[in-house]
Design a protein around this nucleic acid. Structure first.
Length: 566
RNA sequence: UGUCCCGUGGUGUAGUGGUAGCACAGCGCUCUUUGACAGCGUUAGCCUAGGUUCAAAUCCUAGCGGGACAACCA
């Protein structure tokens, strides 16, 4: 009988962790070496975060494990060091540390060149003069075999010479490539004499003009993994068909380390797109204000929106790792966010859509300081004071002239509690000459200071408020999902993702009324505006003493649901 | 008319021949100085058909469905 019977059962491992655990217990490896291998050609997004959490998570949770950050920078026409900096920032913001293990595939170019020569000498690679179109033509189709290149049988000596002259810049872009000699009849297209090197007379962001030939992904990636001693090379499902080539390259070269490639499903999220191409369209065509627009699923966008690293890590843990295509409900991400913010963030009061309330029996010009709790989840967060005055703002939605029975807020003759303040009763509704409500006249009960009635009477509703005299006015942006459909990638009836863009994904409130302490918020600082949602002082547009707030997400709202049901 | 991968509640997942579990979402209730949080309850699932077995989500076969693959991209 085990004595640990009150232990909760061990958390089950996903299939990748299971493979690694087995490799460790079998003694195949002492500790795992993984890598996150972005191409520096764009900003990383929540889908990359899944991969980052997997790869770095694996190194963190195994003794002696390491995870490399390696840039797959083999295509100079698309890449830029601007992207390497942003990716480094994002990975470390997410909470991961690559230590000394920062690498670039471009650092291996010389070694890769030597290995290519080795392949040529073995008669396993050749220089091909076919044009781009001819190569495509010779490749065949998934259902029919390809044809051999007429240059396939060049001698190793000729190939060595030609390859060197390619390197020396003697040939024009596109005039020659180096190809592996495998099998033009293979059912796997990637094995039909794949291109290994192409000529690109383009300046590389790191190697400058030193090279004019650049290795392809399939040649570079496996060898970079091997050079770095990676044990498990984790990638997304679309690379599954590349695995035979990954293994072929390593098996046909004199390298001692042969990592195991394992594929998992990439993340898909409802109400957004996660392809670099589509994200780029959103940015370039001005649908958003840049890669870090708070509506973007990029790590920089999420950061500006107010997501926390912990919430993203928690989400990545919750979704798991599998091999089947899925579409994860963004509600899961939001849940992870609220869970984190609810525990950690201080509360404040803010009125977004104000209506003025005059407390007729409160002395004119008087300001009273009331104490408010900063975080009911965390007593150590302490309290603050809020100024209370004769004129205050409350939320438009918190008043109804003709309220239904289930409406707990303010209405003519009704009494509610002002959060941390007093009970007030609505005595009079003031309208302008077109019949719009402009002001409410209420009376307060001085006995209820702090929010409790000595006579024990209860009120059903508590609403938030801000002193009109002392309000801090600033810009608040309310963000909503970027697309109106849960799967904007689905191209039904000739529609593209652009046709599903949510026209009202951004509402700007120019002068919201916030409690005064909020004027001191630091950029990046998050708060819960009670009863409204979580808000974050914008990293870019905030000025000292005048932060601009972004709504990160709303609170769950049972009343809104009830209202919609009716 | 190819090859490969994959099918568990609405969604994301667990299960490794022996009671289908968790989370999110939904619904209902309780609590509440946030209609939040929290707590409780509840709806709902093994793609189909055969086979092996005392016993199948799990093993086998076939079908059906989804996905990937024909950049000198990664």
């Amino acid at each position: 009988m085990e004595e640990d019977n009150n232990d909760s059962k061990p958390e089950s491992l996903d299939f990748i962790r299971e493979i690694i655990a087995n490799d460790l217990s079998d003694g195949k490896h002492d500790s795992p070496v993984t890598r996150f291998p972005p191409e520096p050609n764009g900003y990383i997004h929540i889908g990359h975060a899944k991969s980052i959490c997997l790869n770095f998570g694996l190194s963190n949770e195994n003794k002696g494990g390491v995870c490399h950050l390696r840039f797959d920078d083999t295509n100079p026409v698309k890449e830029d060091s601007e992207y390497v900096e942003s990716i480094k920032q994002d990975v470390s913001w997410l909470g991961f540390d690559w230590g000394e293990n920062l690498f670039f595939a471009s650092d291996y170019f010389e070694k890769l060149y030597e290995l290519a020569q080795e392949l040529i000498k073995e008669g396993k690679a050749f220089v091909c003069d076919l044009s781009f179109d001819e190569i495509a033509d010779h490749r065949g189709t998934p259902k029919s075999p390809g044809k051999n290149s007429p240059y396939r049988d060049r001698s190793p000596a000729d190939n060595i010479d030609l390859f060197e002259r390619m390197r020396n810049g003697e040939f024009e872009d596109g005039s020659k490539v180096l190809r592996a000699k495998i099998d033009m009849a293979s059912p796997n297209l990637h094995l039909r004499d794949p291109v290994l090197y192409r000529i690109r007379k383009t300046t590389h962001h790191r190697t400058g003009d030193k090279w004019c030939i650049y290795p392809m992904y399939d040649f570079t990636h496996c060898l970079s993994d091997s050079i770095e001693g990676v044990t498990h090379s984790l990638c997304t499902l679309e690379f599954e068909v590349h695995r035979p080539l990954y293994d072929w390259v390593l098996a046909n070269l004199s390298v001692e380390c042969h990592p195991r490639q394992i594929e998992f499903a990439r993340l898909n999220l409802t109400y957004t797109v996660l392809s670099k191409r589509k994200l780029l369209v959103l940015v370039q065509e001005g649908y958003v204000d840049g890669w870090d627009d708070p509506r973007m699923p990029t790590v920089s966008g999420l950061r500006r929106r107010g997501f926390t690293p912990a919430s993203i890590r928690g989400f990545c843990h919750a979704i798991g790792v599998t091999k089947f295509n899925s579409l994860t409900d963004v509600a899961l991400l939001e849940h992870s966010l609220r869970q984190d913010l609810n525990e950690t963030v201080e509360r404040r009061l803010a009125v977004l859509h104000p209506i003025k309330v005059v407390i007729t029996n409160f002395q004119e010009g008087q300001i009273e300081e009331l104490e408010a709790v900063n975080n009911p989840k965390n007593p150590e967060a302490g309290t603050r004071t809020m100024p209370f005055s004769r004129e205050i703002y409350i939320e438009k939605d918190d008043f109804m002239e003709d309220p239904p029975k289930k409406f707990f807020r303010l209405g003519p003759g009704r009494e509610v509690r002002l959060r941390f303040a007093y009970f007030i009763t609505c005595q009079e509704v003031i309208k302008n000459n077109v019949g719009e409500i402009v002001e409410l006249h209420c009376t307060y009960d001085p006995e209820t200071r702090g929010g409790n009635a000595p006579d024990g009477r209860k009120v059903k509703g508590t609403i938030h408020w801000v002193s009109a005299a002392k309000a801090f006015e600033t810009k608040v942006r309310l963000y909503d999902r970027l697309f109106t459909t849960d799967d904007p990638n689905k191209e039904d009836e000739g529609k593209t993702f652009i046709d599903h863009i949510n026209e009202s994904s951004l509402e700007v409130i120019a002068d919201a009324k916030l409690e005064p302490s909020l004027s001191e918020a630091n950029p990046g600082e998050s708060f819960q505006f009670e009863r409204l949602g979580y808000f974050c002082a914008d990293l870019k547009d905030s000025e000292h003493g005048k932060p601009v707030f972004n709504r990160t997400t709303t609170l769950r709202d049972a009343w809104a649901k009830k209202k919609n049901q009716a």
